[in-house]
Design a protein around this nucleic acid. Structure first.
Length: 353
DNA sequence: TATCATGATTCCCA
DNA sequence: TGGGAATCATGATA
């Protein structure tokens, strides 16, 4: 057959079968070229491809039948939320975090982010490289055996799915690393650490403003936590609940300690009370009467007149008319007295309800 | 480094 | 189950 072109399909098939009997390496390029240039080549190729598609290849399109992997979606969402994937959010847990811890957390999260993105880039490069290699290999082979574009795509899809498995592993281990980092950070927070001055101010203001009932509700605790800048707004959804509870416990601890120590050291407490009363009086004098009545600290209350722990207060008697305020003379201000009465009325109403 | 201040924990009780 | 009381542990300061 060398040197002569097969004239019909059966001849061409014979030629192909002959080639298959030998190794392709053994054939010279002349034979290959003869086949490539044969006028019936494309027709035969199409027939074989069609036959192969009918017999071997599934009619189904594998890409269409597989929806987005939910596990992969969860991992992706989490990585974005944690600031590992997507735009760099700085990896903050809360603005109250002490500088050292927060910086340490951010640095470690950044390290995870860098390693993750580096690995992901390598993975994508390897995947693309391998896919490209397979594509060109199959395209090359399609010169000598029937390989349709559809088959090539199918092969590429299978390869990409294999790589996707590796991607899931990478994302899983990255999520684990972030979770470990997070739990370590939270454990570190459990160690005693002083609140900021601003936070203590807010808590003290509430305490002395509610001396008649220094027991904030859960709602009030959350509100105090926010006011203390122990905000949870920057915390990702995944740990939102845990951290909210954690801050509420901190506020509870603070009030627990405060109540005990207030009783134990009344002298110092009275001093502090008058300090906060003076602050509030200044606020009132500056027109604060229109402010929140719950946040209002009447001088009388702050000075101890409404204080249940104050030995000056005899149960059953109208505390507003009990003795002189020990420190704060501003209770003589009619406006402040009215505020004190209002506060007591509110307290009584609360008790009755 | 001693002392104080203060947040956290534990136990007990109503 | 929440609060009081005692105690522990650690940060701040002189």
């Amino acid at each position: 057959m060398v040197g002569t072109h097969p004239t019909n399909l059966s001849e061409l098939l014979d030629a192909v079968l002959k080639i298959n009997d030998q190794t392709l390496d053994d054939n010279d390029n002349t034979k290959k070229q003869e086949l490539q240039c044969h006028p019936m080549r494309q027709a035969l190729f199409n027939v074989l491809v069609e036959t192969k598609e009918k017999t071997v290849l599934s009619v189904r399109n594998p890409v269409d039948e597989t929806p987005e992997d939910p596990q992969l979606m969860r991992l992706d969402n989490m990585l974005v939320a944690e600031g590992v994937a997507g735009p760099d959010k700085g990896g903050s847990l809360g603005s109250d975090a002490s500088g050292g811890d927060q910086a340490d957390y951010r640095q470690k999260l950044h390290q995870i982010r860098v390693v993750y993105n580096d690995e992901l880039r390598k993975y994508e490069e390897a995947c693309n490289e391998f896919t490209q290699h397979v594509r060109s290999l199959l395209k090359d082979q399609s010169q000598v055996r029937p390989i349709a574009q559809k088959e090539i795509e199918r092969m590429v899809y299978i390869i990409q799915r294999k790589f996707s498995g590796i991607q899931v592993q990478l994302k899983q281990s990255t999520c684990e690393a972030v979770m470990i980092l997070r739990s370590r950070f939270l454990d570190a927070r459990r160690k005693r650490r002083n609140f900021s001055k601003q936070a203590t101010e807010v808590l003290n203001e509430y305490f002395y403003g509610h001396l008649s009932n220094p027991y904030p509700s859960e709602e009030a605790k959350e509100d105090l936590a926010r006011q203390c800048n122990i905000t949870v707004s920057q915390v990702t959804q995944i740990n939102f609940q845990t951290i909210t509870v954690f801050f509420a416990v901190q506020v509870s601890n603070w009030f627990g300690n405060k109540r005990i120590r207030y009783k134990k050291n009344m002298a110092k407490a009275q001093e502090e009370a008058s300090l906060y009363a003076a602050k509030k009086n200044a606020h009132v004098a500056l027109g604060g009467m229109t402010g929140n009545p719950y946040g209002m600290l009447p001088g009388a209350a702050a000075a101890g007149l409404l204080n249940p722990y104050n030995p000056m207060n005899i149960p059953g008697q109208d505390t507003l008319h009990m003795g002189m305020p020990p420190f704060d003379l501003s209770v003589y201000n009619p406006q402040l007295m009215a505020a004190a009465q209002y506060q007591q009325q509110m307290d009584n109403d609360n008790k009755n309800s």
